[in-house]
Amino acid sequence: MKHSMKVNLQVWRQKNAQAQGNFENYSVETNPNMSFLEMFDVLNEQLIHDGKEPVAFDHDCREGICGMCSMVINGNPHGPKQAITTCQLHMRSFNDGDTIVVEPWRANAFPVIKDLSVNRSSFDRIIASGGFVSVNTGNAVDANNILIPKDIADEAFEAATCIGCGACVSACKNASAMLFVGAKVTQLSLLPQGQAERQSRVVAMVNQMDAEGFGACTNTGACAAECPKGIPLSVIATLNREYTSAKLNGK
């Protein structure tokens, strides 16, 4: 196996939210077994060595569960492979000499903080608008205290795998957040703990989603195709159903 490869990068550089950004060209010698973020670490070492400003990009766990690594790579959020995050993408997915375009999530509801780093607080405000569920702390409760049928638990868990990364918004032509909101609403409306505020929650979350400036869903399916956790489009159908029935109940 080859141990070195060279890639040409076109990276979005933007000083702050107000500044006009532009693409800068870089060339990086990398190892095919490095992750895409490690390749960026090499690039930043190089930039620091040359006395230039390193590229700001978000990252945290580097194992595909935190949802921080927001990069649009060659037009696809998290790059060319499906169902992974940027930190799980390796340089062996590219060819020696490739030109790779790297951009931040682009949506008015996700303003750029700097370079590839965007502000996703709008997601936090949608979550907060949904209220909270009470969970007793102290001694662990018995696992079977609240009975949940296995198929329901599985379906709720599937929706709960959403890591809130925002790839759905970045891929959607309308910058809609419905896959994210759909995943959260589906998860809570399936479980017994979520029943008390089921209807008021969905209305509050959709209102907040609209207020944050996300677009309206037109069912193109780009979100589900780009979701690193494979959240299915059916959560949006559930969201539509939950919201409409809440509205018909006068919520």
């Binding site: 649009v72 696809n76 951009e103 682009r106 949506a107 008015n108 750029v112 193109t220 399916g221 780009a222």
Partner: peptide
């Protein structure tokens, strides 16, 4: 109007 700054690259892998 929900995305004022457009993407520089079109998706290489089609998603819709």
């Amino acid at each position: 109007k929900k995305r004022n700054n457009k993407y520089g690259a079109a998706p290489k892998r089609s998603n819709s």
